[in-house]
């Protein structure tokens, strides 16, 4: 059997990229105690708006900016529901996901009934002749800028301190003069933007077109990764790489026909099963942000 290791690593980095963007987005939101189940819909929105604007304007850059805008709006909507109104987080998040996916599908069906349009100008890989490093700039930014920056912000800055204070004890944070509302809104908007970039990466860089199953549960993978990582940045990145690695390996094996009878679905189910297994093993020791799933009411 021959596995092309370089092609494998290259595919791994590409597959991991949207998970790193959206996973870190979800991590930032969950740090403040909000579980954003709108992630699947927000990634979908980013993929769709990015594609639509890039197609109309001819510029993937404008598409990316529009996707970011869409992600911020999705975050604002989650904030309105779960922070301002204090509604049940998981029901609101699922509602947002269902709404955004239905709205994007509606628009896609309306605009493109027959032929499937493809972007004429999408993002191209940097260093196309170098193995493994033949990646999109969004991949480079995800691993070399976003992840270190998120790690540093959460660990060493006032903003990171405020996020965690709100997530761990919002009453104490409030008494200490940190606005729970503002902190959660900021996290939701920044997180929404990152999720949307993750989705837009698929249309603007990888595929160059939009399909109705484009996100296909990647948002739920990110929910799993964040818990598996126990709300830490580098384990999220590592988890994304492991997941992407198994997927890339599976694709390679399917090509080489050696192990093609290992069902690909089993590999794809691994991140979910790994998280459930980890939760079962860690048990009560899993330290969720203390204000997880709770709305803040000031009497």
């Amino acid at each position: 059997m021959s596995i092309n290791v370089l092609a494998l690593l290259s595919a791994m980095l590409t597959i991991a990229t949207p998970l790193v963007w959206a996973g870190i987005g979800e991590l930032i939101v969950e740090k403040t105690g909000v579980l954003n189940l709108g992630i699947e819909g927000t990634m979908y929105l980013g993929a769709f708006i990015g594609f639509l604007v890039a197609l109309r304007s001819g510029s993937p850059w404008l598409g990316l900016i529009a996707a970011i805008g869409g992600g911020v709006v999705a975050g604002l909507l989650m904030g309105l529901l779960t922070v301002t109104l204090g509604l049940n987080q998981h029901v609101s998040g699922l509602g947002v996901t269902l709404l955004l996916i239905a709205a994007c599908e509606f628009a896609f069906r309306l605009l493109y009934t027959g032929a499937r349009p493809t972007l004429e100008d999408k993002f191209q890989v940097l260093l196309p002749d170098v193995p493994v490093l033949d990646q999109h700039w969004l991949t480079y930014v995800a691993f070399l800028v976003l992840a270190p920056a998120a790690w540093w912000v959460l660990r060493a800055t006032g903003m990171g301190y405020r996020l965690q204070a709100v997530g761990e004890n919002f009453e104490a944070a409030d008494v200490a003069g940190i606005s729970v509302t503002a902190t959660r809104y900021v996290a939701l908007m920044v997180g929404g933007a990152l999720m949307a970039i993750g989705g837009a990466f698929l249309t603007l860089a990888v595929l160059g077109n939009f399909t109705l199953d484009i996100i296909n549960g990647r948002g739920w993978v990110c929910i799993a990764l964040v818990i598996f990582a126990k709300w830490r940045v580098w384990p999220v990145v590592l988890g994304a790489l492991i997941f992407a690695g198994t997927d890339a390996l599976q694709l390679q094996l399917a090509i080489t026909k050696t192990f093609s009878d290992i069902p690909r679905e089993l590999m794809l189910a691994l991140p979910y099963l790994a998280v459930i297994a980890a939760l079962a093993v860690w048990g009560r020791k899993v330290h969720y942000p203390a204000s997880y799933l709770q709305a803040y009411r000031r009497g």
């Binding site: 549960g217 929910i223 799993a224 679905e265 189910a269 979910y272 459930i276 048990g283």
Partner: peptide, 27 residues
């Protein structure tokens, strides 16, 4: 048994169930 939050575990088993269906239908 472990007081493990059911929101996340029940949610994550949904894509797994879909993969089970797809795996069975592909195999």
């Amino acid at each position: 048994r472990g007081a493990i939050d059911e929101v996340v575990t029940t949610l994550l088993l949904n894509p797994v169930a879909l993969l089970v269906v797809q795996g069975l239908l592909n195999g």
